[in-house]
Design a protein around this nucleic acid. Structure first.
Length: 286
DNA sequence: CGTTTTTGACCAGCGC
DNA sequence: GCGCTGGTCAAAAACG
């Protein structure tokens, strides 16, 4: 990997050319995350937050055109480069070399006798979609975000005593995945990484309000960059309250399954240049 | 009994 | 080529 100490970096470098995500100014970016931080004085309770958004997203040039979530993907960042990974090895935007989809030619040429299982796996070459990583200080590993997830794997992580869990959205037509792991340096921090974008509404939180992807006030789907679902945290809850105050609607309540405190957001040291534009100066690196 | 979690096996990519 | 690592599969177990 590019950086054994930080596997996420292997997703490749996110450059401004990769996306118009960074073309917009900071407030716009944050607003895409429903996090308007520029006026923190309106949120005295948030004043000491170090809002977090370690955005380690990268665009994948090979978003499958056959995605069952194509309707939603149509508003995703990478949709302009739609192609299938298996039959379009010459996909344009070359990202990092780790992208297996771009090396599919070789595997297509050699045809060793394979079991159906292997053939199936070959056909399912990994397709990287845009990712968003959140670091949240919480005792709870699996933060409520309004979606239902099914765990499909768990792996020990190098240089970390904590395993990494892999989840898929339980919606059969949704290909969103997320990884959850704890920071080895600060076990109180949960690192949640979302990959892909939901093509359906949330199921709502078990207790309290329901968030929908079509509510422009809390999910900004009118933007072409849907943020991932946010973990329930004090910070997020405050934002929800504020949003609904502004909208004169009752505030939804997040479930109390998490003891999450203010999210400690962390930037990726190697991406400091990028994140430096969108994170408060109080952000610290892990 | 349907759904979810667990967990060992497998595969691909990367560095040496 | 080999070993390491991350990511996924899938059967079995656990759960509700």
């Amino acid at each position: 990997m590019n950086d054994p100490e930080n596997p996420d970096l292997s997703w490749g470098e996110l450059t401004p050319q990769d996306s118009d995500f960074f073309d917009r100014d900071t407030s716009n970016i944050l607003s895409d995350f429903t996090w308007n931080l520029h006026n923190s004085s309106d949120h005295p309770n948030l004043s000491d937050f170090t809002p977090t958004v370690a955005i380690t997203t990268k665009l994948h040039p090979n978003l499958p055109s056959t995605s069952s979530c194509s309707s939603s993907a149509a508003v995703s960042l990478a949709v302009t480069e739609v192609s299938t990974s298996t039959n379009n090895p010459s996909a344009t935007t070359s990202s990092s070399s780790e992208d297996p989809a771009e090396n599919s030619t070789a595997s297509a040429v050699k045809t060793p006798p394979e079991t159906p299982k292997k053939e199936k796996k070959k056909a399912q070459k990994r397709i990287r979609q845009q990712r968003f990583a959140f670091m949240t200080k919480s005792d709870v590993d699996n933060l409520e975000d309004g979606y239902r997830w099914r765990k499909y794997g768990q792996k020990a992580v190098k240089n970390s005593p904590f395993p990494r869990s892999y989840y898929r959205c339980t919606n059969t037509r949704c290909t969103v995945k997320k990884r959850v792991e704890r920071s080895s340096e600060d076990p109180s921090i949960v690192i949640t990484t979302y990959e892909g974008q939901h093509c359906h509404q949330t199921i709502g939180f078990p207790r309290g309000g329901i968030l929908t992807a079509h509510d422009p006030h809390n999910y900004t789907s009118h933007h072409h960059h849907l943020p991932p679902p946010l973990p329930n945290s004090y910070y997020y809850q405050e934002l929800l309250h504020q949003l609904h105050r502004d909208n004169n609607t009752p505030s939804p309540r997040l479930p109390q399954s998490s003891t999450a405190t203010a999210p400690t957001v962390v930037s990726n040291p190697s991406e400091e240049g990028l994140l430096g534009d969108i994170v408060p100066p109080t952000m610290r690196n892990l």
